[in-house]
């Protein structure tokens, strides 16, 4: 791992946060009972997005901007499909942060990534995702991981238990 890997992993996680900010807007619109939960999640991801952008800038990088639009991996029509999207987003985000934990060159960035991985795992559970033994790591650690896509633009890259078939 070097500075280039670190920046690549940080930008990927940032892209994931951008996608989550977009996605939680959609999720919140379909939840009447859990609208407040979705609003809190949206704010949490905005905060983390801004913190990560600041960390990237502090490291001399230029934080990537969000995409103009995102394609949802599956249609969101009701509360159930909205929760499903939230689980999928947190699952993918956990993988991006696990990568960043491994790629981080500074203790500050590693800590940020580790806390974000924990937060994504807890959020995933709150939206109904079954706990897994190694959030963010594909299968058992030690086997090479697959890079999860941060954006809902690539529905083919859904190597998660919650992915639509």
């Amino acid at each position: 791992m070097n500075a280039e890997d670190e920046l690549t992993a940080a930008q990927a996680a940032l892209a994931g946060e951008h996608a989550c900010v977009y996605g939680y807007g959609v999720v919140g619109a379909h939840l009447s009972d859990d609208a407040e939960t979705a609003a809190r999640a949206l704010q949490a991801h905005r905060d983390r997005r801004d913190d990560l952008a600041a960390l990237i800038r502090a490291g001399g990088g230029e934080p990537e901007a969000s995409a103009p639009t995102y394609e949802l991996p599956q249609p969101v029509t009701d509360a159930a499909s909205a929760s499903k999207l939230a689980v999928l987003m947190e699952t993918r985000l956990a993988a991006l942060y696990a990568d960043l934990v491994g790629a981080a060159q500074s203790g500050e960035l590693r800590e940020f990534a580790a806390q974000a991985l924990v937060a994504a795992s807890v959020a995933r559970g709150r939206w109904g995702g079954e706990p897994v033994a190694f959030p963010g790591l594909s299968g058992r650690p030690g086997t090479p991981g697959t890079q999860a896509s941060p954006t809902p633009q690539t529905p083919s890259d859904t190597e998660t238990p919650e992915s639509p078939q």
Binding site: V101, L117, P141
Partner: peptide
């Protein structure tokens, strides 16, 4: 995770923490 020097090992520890928090 913050004390670990191996990067892969650090990721495993963070993942275990994430599971336990969930």
């Amino acid at each position: 995770c913050l004390a670990a020097s191996g990067s892969r090992f650090a990721a495993v520890l963070a993942s275990v923490a994430a599971c336990e928090a969930a």
